[in-house]
Design a binder for these strands. Structure first.
Lengths: 334, 334
DNA sequence: AACAATAGTGCAACCGGTTGCAAGCGCAAG
DNA sequence: CTTGCGCTTGCAACCGGTTGCACTATTGTT
């Protein structure tokens, strides 16, 4: 016999104390217009005195609504996700929903387990950059309201940040500043975000007539960014667009280690705007991601839960935030 | 009539399909040793075919155990918390618990609301840097297994990172490197962590015979760190220990802006080790915080849930991680 | 062969709410 | 003085599991 949960008052206790039936007590909260006003007051007062709070589990069992949602992320320690989670969290707070957080550690199988464990106790899912196969996500979305972030599966509700706009702005800026050869520091090719960004860079560069080198970095990390600087310089590029801010931050460090100056010697542009101005020099980056997509996903999910039919595909336009890591190409460069 | 939740199979369905009673079906999962082995197999197979999964709500209702826990943080976007949450998350995964995340936005009242909403659907709480008054936390801990992080309330289970050790190491290092005057860049005085760190620095500095200036920065932020550099230099200090890595990171940027070099011109030490090596120069810092305290808190909580009586107070010894932002004081300095 | 012990199963109550339906009530209309 | 209707309220079933207890075979013991 472990410590039993201290006996909080139940609805039956309240009903007994008020001399009414459970149904009446229940309705004093859920449908007060059906109950004689003076009784509503009395029941509520007694409930308060007893410290009664409805048990969400029991309520969920009969109503089918849990008042919970879940947000699943690949890695909460990746700076892209905390603002996203925070946005979901604050929207959920307004809707009086509690939120489960699942961290899949970038693993599809753990994601599967989490989703299964949570499915019965939530009214909906926000899946951020899910790693599950399309088919499984489709099935899930059929059973439970589900909104994807950064994953484009037709037929499933999703919010996507539109890389094209921001990338175009970035390339235009670089072109205007005299750069003629740039590099794209690619992220994980299986990620939808990288596919989009890569394609956008390729297209924009070719449109602007810029030479483009793509460097495959694999898992996006600070180290990967720092270590690619040498080979990046070797391509002859004078500016780089990185898959994300973390890589870009690493690149900054790489240059500093080499004693080269950004932006004087080289221009760097990140993506996601999650490091804000906390790099040195402050990072020019393509914003429009994290918090906004969390908020948008939550709005869609709430609508879905309410049985509405929100837009299936929400695009968030990323745009360039110009800070200090970009400047005109040096005259004597190249 | 909103979209009713798609009819997943219930235990009754399984029982019917297997031609046994609900009890037998139930026990085929929870107490298989009571059921004839061949029936266990058959029931489980049929359940699998029907895609049956037990409803955690219903189970919770009768067993009293929810298999959920909650972790409440003041601000998930503060880099101290994601690793902590991640550690809790991964421990919970092992114990097959799902985790609620609450973000209080640094507000005691939102914390109150969250705790109330969650209390009935979790087996325990991890409260990280809670803002609630002692009395309320005590009451909660009496009703529900609860573990605090970075909050020292006697009688309540808690894990605290012991600043003293790491701070002492830091001060010893600085002393050995020839520094004679240092600064402490203080965090929010109402935070337990700042109180500890401040006291430890004061004591260690006096013990080592170092001159110490304390600069009040209020809310710990990158900007605050960057902007205090001027007045910090004015104190005559040649090294600083910051309340946290975020401030220290700002200080690094402040020096870079001034064209001064760290560590050649000035040594900087952070706290928490949440920025890892992602600053330039890589930040020397007092580690032992985030992930470790999350893991320790979870262990304590699990024990508590199992009805054991774990140590009430767990101290995590912070220790100095020596990276690149500290060096010997320049001969001509001062 | 009679009897006890044991393994396997089912009945029904219970966890704490919600809700359809019907019953009791007062009051106005006929 | 009925009849009818609307307002309140209670009964009881239900949501989907778990579990104490009783019951029936089986097997083992003298």
């Amino acid at each position: 016999m472990t410590s039993k949960r201290n006996g909080t008052a139940t609805l039956a206790d309240v009903a007994a104390a008020a001399g009414v039936s459970k149904s009446t007590a229940s309705r004093a909260f859920s449908r007060p217009e059906l109950i004689r006003p003076e009784n509503v007051d009395r029941i509520r007062r007694i409930a308060a005195e007893l410290g009664y709070t409805a048990d969400p589990r029991a309520r969920a069992l009969s109503t089918g609504r849990t008042a919970n949602i879940a947000v699943i992320v690949p890695d909460i320690a990746n700076p892209f996700f905390p603002p996203l989670v925070r946005a979901v969290e604050s929207g959920a707070e307004r809707a009086e929903l509690a939120v489960f957080l699942g961290d899949t550690d970038e693993s599809a199988s753990r994601e599967r387990v989490l989703v299964d464990r949570l499915e019965k106790q939530v009214d909906g899912f926000v899946l951020a950059s899910p790693r599950l196969p399309d088919a499984q996500i489709r099935e899930l979305a059929e059973r439970v309201p589900t909104v994807l972030i950064n994953r484009d599966i037709p037929g499933v509700h999703r919010v996507l940040v539109d890389a094209a706009t921001g990338v175009r702005e970035a390339v235009e800026l670089l072109t205007a500043l005299g750069h003629r050869a740039i590099a794209y520091l690619a992220g994980p090719p299986e990620s939808w975000a990288d596919q989009q960004r890569r394609a956008a860079v390729v297209q924009a560069a070719s449109h602007a007539g810029l030479a483009l080198s793509v460097l495959e970095l694999g898992r996006p990390s600070y180290e990967a960014g720092r270590e690619c600087v040498g080979s990046m310089i070797a391509t002859g590029a004078t500016a780089a667009i990185a898959f994300d801010d973390v890589i870009a931050h690493g690149v900054l460090a790489g240059f500093a280690t080499l004693g080269r100056e950004v932006p004087a010697d080289f221009s760097v542009i990140g993506c996601d705007d999650v490091l804000a101005a906390t790099t040195f020099p402050a990072l020019t980056t393509i914003s429009g991601g994290s918090a906004a997509s969390g908020a948008a996903a939550l709005d869609t999910l709430l609508a879905l839960i309410d049985g509405e039919h929100p837009e299936q595909r929400t695009a968030i336009a990323g745009h360039l935030v110009h800070r200090a890591s970009v400047s005109a190409v040096r005259q004597h460069a190249r």
